Amino acid sequence: MISLAARPFSLAQLSAGDDVPVLLPFYHLVSDHDHPFQYNYRVLSTKRFREDLDFLLAYFEPITLEELHSGMNLKNCFHLSFDDGLRQCFDVIAPILKEKGVPATFFVNPAFVDNHDLFHRYKAAVLNQFFAKKGVMSDLQNTYADLMSLDQMAEDVGLDWQEYLQKENPYMTLEQLSQLERDGFTIGAHSWDHPEFWLLDEASQLDEIRESMEWLGANFSPKIKAFAFPFTDFGVSPFVFDAIRRERLCDLTFGTAGIKFEKETRHHQRLPMERAGYKTARDLLKAEYLSYQLKRLVDQHVAKRE
């Protein structure tokens, strides 16, 4: 409905206003083949991804993470990012970005780099695909708290996670990430092992941030230390944000609430670009900007976490 309502308006009209946040689109992977992780989000083809980039470049100026952090005039700018550190970021996405001259940040989970382990939602996705091939319908969407049950289920049906990781290599290696940094891209942290933060107490949330940022500093030399909350920043208390600033853990942090005004200093909201139901990036952005403008009329355009 919101997409239809946005059609009569131009993108310039919908994105007008001094308090409209900088555009921060993000993706996970791009692939022209069936992928088990499509149970978690829509996997875009290389054609669609290229079309997205061409659209963004026609209307917005790409900026680096340093420029975002600098507080420069961010009107009609965008910074692109990618979550989870999947292999397609190196094999498919980075070459396209270099071809088009688009800077980006890759947010990774240290626990999964070099394919040492698999994110719990991806375990659920692989199990869903396994059951589908057997003709059994399933829709596993297990949380971090269900890791043991997922591992037990895999064992029961004969799935060996280490064998899967060695065969499929779903994640980038440390060397590939280092090459991305040498190519001018930024590497950021995405928590240690991608838990739902709303399931964790404050101490555990901070541990996830501290440990992943320490790993980042030990392995890379980011000019801007960036952390993207996994899933969402919902459930992250003011105490945690205060600790981030007090301990200088990060220069920038990110949520996933789309185009939202953010009260937290040095904290931004990113826009998921893999939403189902939108044929083009233009349709998605116009709907998102219209939603923001309507919410602004009733003072509901500010990000809320609790």
Score class of each variant (00 low, 15 high):
155 E>L: 06
5 A>N: 06
253 T>Q: 00
93 I>R: 08
235 G>H: 11
153 M>N: 14
28 H>Q: 13
64 T>Y: 12
98 K>N: 09
118 L>H: 15
174 L>E: 15
19 D>Y: 11
86 L>Q: 05
56 L>C: 10
134 K>M: 11
225 K>R: 10
128 N>T: 02
34 D>H: 13
287 A>D: 01
145 A>Y: 13
257 A>Q: 11
258 G>P: 01
3 S>R: 10
136 V>W: 13
227 F>M: 00
149 S>F: 08
80 L>N: 06
290 L>V: 02
165 L>C: 13
125 A>Q: 11
62 P>F: 01
136 V>T: 12
176 Q>W: 07
300 Q>I: 06
49 F>Y: 13
114 D>P: 00
46 T>G: 04
41 Y>A: 12
64 T>M: 04
164 Y>E: 12
181 E>N: 09
88 Q>C: 08
37 F>Q: 08
179 Q>K: 05
203 A>Y: 14
251 D>K: 05
245 R>M: 01
30 V>C: 06
278 Y>G: 02
276 A>P: 08
27 Y>T: 05
290 L>A: 07
287 A>E: 04
280 T>H: 04
11 L>K: 02
115 N>D: 14
45 S>T: 14
297 L>I: 06
208 E>F: 00
14 L>E: 04
37 F>D: 04
290 L>P: 00
28 H>T: 07
65 L>A: 00
281 A>R: 10
169 N>P: 00
285 L>F: 04
287 A>N: 05
76 N>A: 07
229 F>K: 04
102 V>P: 02
231 F>S: 02
178 S>A: 09
297 L>C: 09
193 D>V: 00
41 Y>F: 15
122 Y>N: 12
86 L>A: 06
280 T>R: 01
211 E>Q: 10
231 F>E: 04
289 Y>D: 08
54 D>G: 00
30 V>F: 08
257 A>L: 03
63 I>P: 12
202 E>H: 13
157 V>Q: 11
